[in-house]
């Protein structure tokens, strides 16, 4: 096992999901993966969250575009709003920036723009990214979670500060999706 990538993680999670086991703990090299099935009594309202978001691991964390786009018509949000009580879940922007997509923090933790101190940031304003490009790291008690862009497009704004705590769903980046991306319903 040289390295485990997101594909592998998804495969492992799928196997767990289909198995009769409730928990899985896998440690190999510098990777530690802990996955847990939801209890039967759980309320179903959180269906929109993809299964991989329930995993604590240093493996790639993808923001689920389906989940993010669900409430587009009904939600309007000012991305600069730092106060948590002003924040709503998903995303759309004021009219002048119509079509811009917000990347939100998938978890609370410390926001890092670069893979290590002194290294160049993953992304800068103006940079083009594809869905799988890593845009930042969120650290939770020494677990480093990489966050991917989730869409193809151009970074237009960076909304969080390096080394600072970001809350769950705090706006991190604005991305202007490429035309193809924008034609998708809701995007």
């Amino acid at each position: 096992m040289e390295s485990i990538d997101q594909e592998d993680i998804l495969l492992i999670l799928k196997l767990l999901e289909e198995s009769k086991f409730d928990d899985l703990c896998l440690e190999t090299g510098n990777l530690k993966l802990i996955a847990r099935k939801q209890g039967k009594g759980e309320i179903q309202a959180e269906k929109e969250f993809s299964f991989e978001e329930r995993v604590s691991s240093p493996a790639p964390q993808r923001i689920n575009p389906e989940g993010r786009n669900q409430d587009l018509e009904s939600q309007v949000i000012v991305p600069e709003a730092k106060e948590s009580r002003r924040m709503e879940s998903p995303v759309l922007l004021p009219k002048d920036q119509e079509g811009t997509i917000l990347i939100q923090a998938p978890m609370l933790g410390t926001f890092y723009r670069a893979p290590k101190p002194g290294a160049p940031p993953f992304v800068e304003v103006g940079q083009r990214v594809t869905e799988d490009d890593v845009v930042c790291i969120i650290e939770v008690m020494k677990l480093f979670n990489t966050v991917k862009a989730g869409v193809q497009g151009q970074i237009t704004k960076i909304l969080a500060e390096n080394g600072q705590m970001v809350e769950f769903q705090q706006p991190l980046f604005l991305i202007k999706p490429t035309a193809e991306e924008r034609r998708r319903p809701g995007a």
Binding site: G39, R54, F168
Partner: peptide, 9 residues
Amino acid sequence: VCIGPPPAM
């Protein structure tokens, strides 16, 4: 501070 989605876990 918002720490996560509704499920307590």
